[in-house]
Computed example of a mutant assay.
Amino acid sequence: MNLLLNQQDLYTPGDQAVWKGRIDGEQRDWMRWHQLMECTDLMVNPDLSQSVVFLGFCSDEGVVRNQGRIGAKDGPGAIRNVLANLPVHFSSKLKLKDAGDIFLKDSDLESSQLTLGYALSSILKAGGFPIVLGGGHEVTYGHYLGIKDYLRDGGHKIGMINLDAHLDMRALAGGKGNSGTGFYQIEADRKDTDQAFHYMAIGIQEISNTSGLINYAKSKGTQIVERKDLVPSKLNAIKDQIETFASEVDYIYLTVDLDAFAAPYAPGVSALAFNGIVPDDLFFDLYSAIMGLPNMKSMDIAELNPYFDIDARTAKLAADLIFKFVNRF
């Protein structure tokens, strides 16, 4: 049974009208993404084999609860606007599909996260590679719920790589999760089910995390790569660390919080990082190593806040991360 049927008021299928843009020609070499994008409805159990499947998570309730800048709920639309006009360089064997959006109703974040989980699990079961477009970083826990549902037997090891200035491992506030609690919730769930917690956080900054939080994360086995360590002399060692981390798990989930990047490149985020990662050749060498992991099976882009973006810089950065991955898929 399609579990989304129970949450259909929180889900809308892909809309072909969204995918429009410049047309340079009808031959593949001249095409742009909007000309090849296929919209789909997860309610009808579509065949998503050989497909990269986009799914929007239109929520910033977690950001609101975390006292961040409101607006990330409109991030999926802003990213799609840039993706639409990207040139086609990917293999003709690959299909692009838009599975639509998950919405928030009555500030009920938990129901939206559960619905996201059902949707993501449906994509994986149908043979697709999900890329979730955020939305606040509360997307993490919903994404995890989907992976957990997909790997039902409980015997699989899930590895999570987070590109972020923040560890997002703070305890629940008033018993509720927010954009900064995702990995705390995941660790608690793994512990309750006697499963190991595999978490690597890259780009972390001391100025963005309390010492207590850093120590807590380390006590749970979190592998932390600080922003200050992303330098040429340490690059190969970090890449080796990533490969070793991935080799110890069955499933790699990549989440990219755009606030990991320096403010000039990513002004449109919920929590600005003035001295974050510079998206230069060094970073993309590291990112290429992550993209090349054979067991990387899903990803999301979080915290795009178009209301604070300048010339769509942050949306274009998000689109470039997706563009590079799809071309390599």
Rank of each mutant, 00 (worst) to 15 (best):
V225S: 10
M200K: 11
I207F: 07
D194G: 02
H198M: 08
K191A: 15
G203C: 04
A217Q: 00
I207K: 11
D194Q: 12
I204W: 00
K218F: 03
I186V: 14
D192A: 15
I214W: 00
A201M: 07
Q205M: 09
M200Y: 09
G203Q: 03
D189Y: 08
I214D: 00
G203F: 02
D229H: 13
D229N: 13
S219N: 03
K228M: 11
R190G: 01
G221D: 00
E206A: 10
S208F: 13
G212R: 09
D229L: 09
K218V: 07
H198V: 07
I207N: 06
R190D: 05
A196V: 06
T222I: 04
K218W: 02
E187G: 02
D189Q: 12
I186K: 02
H198N: 15
M200C: 12
Q195M: 15
L213I: 13
G221M: 02
V225R: 09
D194C: 08
L213A: 07
R190E: 14
D192N: 12
F197Y: 15
K191D: 06
K228Q: 13
E187Y: 06
H198W: 13
Q195K: 14
E206Y: 06
D192W: 05
E187T: 04
S219I: 01
Q195S: 14
M200D: 09
S211R: 12
M200F: 09
F197K: 03
I204N: 01
I207G: 02
K220G: 00
I204C: 04
K220M: 05
I202M: 12
Q195Y: 06
Q185M: 13
Q195A: 15
R227L: 05
Y184R: 10
G212W: 06
Y199C: 03
K228T: 14
T193I: 08
F197D: 04
I202Y: 11
E206W: 01
I214F: 00
Q185A: 08
T193R: 12
S219L: 01
K220Y: 03
A201R: 05
Y199M: 06
Q195T: 10
N209C: 02
A196T: 12
M200E: 09
I224W: 01
G203Y: 04
I202F: 11
E187F: 07
D194E: 12
L213C: 09
Y199S: 04
Q205I: 02
F197R: 04
Q195H: 09
T222Y: 00
Q205T: 09
V225F: 11
Y184L: 01
G221I: 03
Y184C: 01
I224A: 03
V225Y: 11
K218L: 14
I214A: 04
L213E: 11
S208D: 08
L213Y: 07
A188I: 07
